[in-house]
Design a protein around this nucleic acid. Structure first.
Lengths: 336, 336
DNA sequence: TTGAAAGCGCTAACAG
DNA sequence: CTGTTAGCGCTTTCAA
């Protein structure tokens, strides 16, 4: 229990608290002699500055929060990893919050029972409604990730979901596929993300003169590989036929691959499959997965930039950054 | 900028700060009339207690840290998810720290530049040496995850790696496999984890009268699917033959599956493969993966229990909890 | 049951 | 270049 305070160091070194503080914080105006004397005392007493007291005095926490539904989902895991690294490199600590499937928890992120906990929040909403988002905009700066229709005044960072969805669909069409299924959107309460991807999907189909068959929209009762496997399995068992599957995310794609495999359907020969997020593991699926690849570094950096400006006092209008994306073409839907 | 303080509420309600504090903290001795009056003022002013000030006054942060090398690794992602949920349910917030591949960063976790940042740390070390661990034991309570030979006085939680490794190896032997490769341990600086798994592996082999062929120990230059794929690929291309591959973790198994597939080696017919951790995605690999399944909930709960006791003031000897595990048998190494 | 006042450990004016 | 002195916003004895 090393309970050594700044004051103790000051006394030990025979200087004032201010001087010790100056040394600890690397302020310029300290004579070398005094500095080394203070440093020696710090060493001798094993002094460590108290983070909480510093926070209270400065008003800054040096901490950011990242809120996602569940970090065990590969995309969120990679996002968290990237943002954590970035936060560290910029001198912030990262608080992790999981909102699960609850709108309540997402609201709580925004409201935050306490104030002064973090300087800012990077938040990827999954279930909360738009007007809720607007209503709960608080004092703590927030940057929204992957949210299309953000309320006024809120910063957002995302890739162009609609455009990316079109590109993927066009890729599938170039492969000569005409009966393209959409897999993995929510059966109830379509998320903004799913909506945008569906939009791009349908647009590309229409532009190509292909039919948009409602029967080919395979919704799931959860955002998971299991749910997608069930949905695709049930569709196949029910006699539905298609030659391509545009999956809402990589997990859905993995589920689809599994359902197809169990029924002896060949990928990509019989059915081409695409994913979304391009998480590391899709390079090791069998077959490897063609997927939309968001530029995660760019996304994270943009989010941090916007957030730091807000933390720094920016009070202007909401900015909307579109991060770049690409299509990683692999075995499940190869080049034409 | 809702800068409303406890004092403001007190004035607005015409009571003292103490009374407001009592209401905010749900202390018993407040008359219903006063309470509702205070509540009304809180509502009217939009008061939110300041977390930092509370911390400074109480000395408790209500925050725990989780330190792992990289949350983008599926096992750590699932671990983080589990621990985060548990922390929340017990009233803690969770700070995420990534140590990457640097021993320095692991040391920093233990030393912690500042004090009073978190109440306790759950730490899964990857690279730090034992004596380092011992040297840097600090004032902040720590529970070590997955570390075999922990220094005196430190609490640890892990599954019995050696036993689990034996069981998996025995499973492979029951399948009639005799040339079993070990895939994915570090080429340089064997980690405690790898060492234990190797031990169990070799013990089982010896007990069965099978030969432990050093050529079949396929180390990797990194803990990743890519590295494992390279190592297994190179071995196969070099003419090495084996009928089973015990992989250090699921990622290595995924890499091994990939290397085998590209060379037309059938799994499990020609080579049976096992993984370790049993992350969700192994249920969607092709073939699905047989793997050691640690009881993550038990692990997380034990770690939290131990940590809370330390936070609560326990100063006794280090406790060592062994969490249960099982073997999830799937396609890559089916039942005999 | 409620109030007044003294810290928690540090930073930041403002002097000197 | 260094010291003094207020706070930061809350909790918490100790009285009333």
């Amino acid at each position: 229990m090393a309970r050594v305070r700044l004051q103790d160091v000051a006394e030990h070194a025979g200087v004032s608290m201010k001087t010790v503080s100056n040394v600890v914080n690397d302020y310029p105006h300290v004579s070398p002699a005094t500095r080394s004397q203070v440093l020696a005392s710090i060493e001798a007493l094993g002094y460590r500055p108290n983070a909480t007291a510093r926070r209270l005095a400065t008003g800054r926490t040096g901490t950011l929060a990242l809120a996602v539904s569940d970090v065990s989902l590969p995309y969120f895991a990679e996002l968290a990893s990237t943002i954590s690294r970035l936060a560290t490199s910029r001198g912030y600590r990262l608080l992790l919050e999981q909102t699960g499937e609850s709108v309540e928890a997402e609201r709580a992120v925004l409201l935050g029972g306490e104030s002064g906990l973090v300087d800012g929040i990077i938040f990827q909403p999954s279930h909360i409604a738009l007007d809720d988002l607007a209503r709960y905009t608080t004092a703590t700066p927030v940057v929204l990730l992957g949210e299309g229709d953000a309320p006024e005044g809120v910063d957002t960072v995302m890739i162009d979901n609609t455009a990316a969805a079109r590109e993927v669909t066009e890729h599938l069409l170039r492969l000569g596929r005409r009966r393209v299924a959409f897999v993995g959107h929510e059966a109830h309460g379509l998320s903004a993300t799913s909506r945008q991807r569906l939009n791009g999907f349908e647009t590309a189909l229409r532009e190509a003169g292909a039919r948009v068959d409602p029967a080919l929209l395979l919704a799931t009762d959860a955002i998971s590989a299991e749910a997608a496997e069930r949905a695709v399995g049930a569709a196949l068992d029910g006699g539905l036929r298609f030659d391509a599957a545009f999956c809402r995310d990589d997990l859905a794609a993995l589920g689809a691959l599994s359902a197809l495999r169990r029924r002896g359907v060949r990928v990509p020969d019989d059915v081409a499959v695409t994913g979304w997020d391009d998480v590391t593991l899709t390079r090791f699926s069998n077959p490897t997965l063609t997927a939309v690849h968001p530029d995660l570094d760019h996304l994270a950096r943009s989010a941090m930039d916007l957030l730091e400006e807000r933390v720094g006092g920016y009070r202007g209008a909401g900015r909307h950054v579109v991060a770049p994306h690409s299509i990683s073409v692999r075995e499940s839907a190869p080049s034409a």
